[in-house]
Amino acid sequence: MKSNKNQIIALILLPVWYVIYTNLQPLSNLFVDTALGMTKGEKLTEALRFFIFEFPKVLMLLVLIIFFVGIVRSFFTAERTRKALEGKSTFMGNIMAALLGIVTPFCSCSAIPLFLGFVESGVPLGVTFSFLIAAPMINEVAVILLYGMFGWKVAGIYIGTGLAIAIVAGWIIGKLKLEKWVEEWVYATKIGKADGVEEKISFSRRIIMGFDAVKEIVSKVWLYVVLGILVGAGAHGYVPAEFMASIMGKDVWYAVPLSVLIGIPLYSNAAGIVPIVSVLIEKGASLGTALAFMMSVIALSLPEMIILRKVLKMPLILTFIAIVGGGIMIVGFLFNWTM
C-alpha cells in the first residue's frame, strides 16, 4: 500500500512543478508590480524582481533535478562501479570511470575508503584517478546552477570539458606508472569479502531516496543560492560593469593560470561558487577564465589533498595537481581563444 503512495505523490507533484515553473515570470511580476505596488523601472524594483524570479527558478530546478539524480544514483552503488571497472586498463577504462564518476554517489569524506576499495580489487590507478577527478568536479548542483544562470550551452561545455580532463588526466597518470608513489600500506591492506547478494530495492524505495537527496542537498545549499543571487542583484547596479575586465578579461593572458592557481587551494561547494562566477562574468571576466576558476575550486582543494595524503605520497599528489590544473588551464585558454 505504502509503495503506491510514494509514486502517486511524485506523479501529482510533477505537473504542479511544471505549472509553477512555466509561470514564474508572470507570477513574480504580479507580486512585484501589483501586490507590492512598486514603480516599474526603479533600481530597487528591478533588483527585487530579479531576486523574486531568479531564486524560485534556481531552487525549483535544483529540487527537480536532484530528485531525479537521487533516483538514478540509487542504481549506481560504489560496489557496482568498482565491479564494472575491475581489470579495465586502457583508455576505455578511463572513459567509463569518468562517466561513472558523474552518477555514482560520492562524498569527499569517502574518498579514502573508495580509493582503497578500488585499488585493492584491481582497478588500475589511472582509472581510479579518472573516477576521483570526475566525481567531485561534475557535480549535479554545479551543472544545474550553470544551466539556470547561463543556459544549457555553458552547462554542456562544463560537463564535456570536465569529462575530458578526468579521462585524459587519469590516462596520463596510468601511463606514468606511479604506483610507487602510493603509500606501501595501501597495497598491504586486506579488504574483507564482499557482502554477497545486494538486496533488491523497490521503485517506491528509490523515490524515497530521491526525496531524501532533495532534502539533504537543498537544505545544505539554499543559503548559498540566496547569497549568490543577492550578490548578483546587488552588484548589478553598484559595481561598474567592466570592473573585472582588466583583471579577468579575455586579453589578460595570465588571467587563466592565475585564476587556476588561486582556485586550487580554495574549497567551496558548487552552490557557493557558481553565483560568484556569474558575478565575475557579468562584470567583464571572460567565460574561459571564469570556468577555469570554478573548476579548480571544485575539483582541487587543500582539504582534499590533505585527505589523499594518507594514501598518496607527496610527488603523486603534486603530479595529480599539476596534470589536473594543467588540463583546466588548457580548457580556460581554449574558451578564451575560441569564444
Binding site: 552503488t77 560504489a78 560496489e79 568498482r82 554517489p105 562524498c107 569524506c109 569517502s110 579514502i112 575508503p113 573508495l114 582503497l116 576499495g117 578500488f118 585493492e120 600500506w185 591492506t189 586486506k190 579488504i191 574483507g192 569479502k193 564482499a194 557482502d195 594518507k310
Partner: peptide, 22 residues
C-alpha cells in the same frame, strides 16, 4: 581506523554494522 573499516569491505562511509554484518 581505515584499515579496520576496509575489513568490512565498505567504500562509502558512514556504515552501520550489527553483529559483524554491514
Amino acid at each position: 581506523d581505515i584499515v579496520e573499516i576496509m575489513k568490512f569491505n565498505v567504500m562509502t562511509t558512514p556504515a552501520l554494522v550489527i553483529d559483524g554484518k554491514v
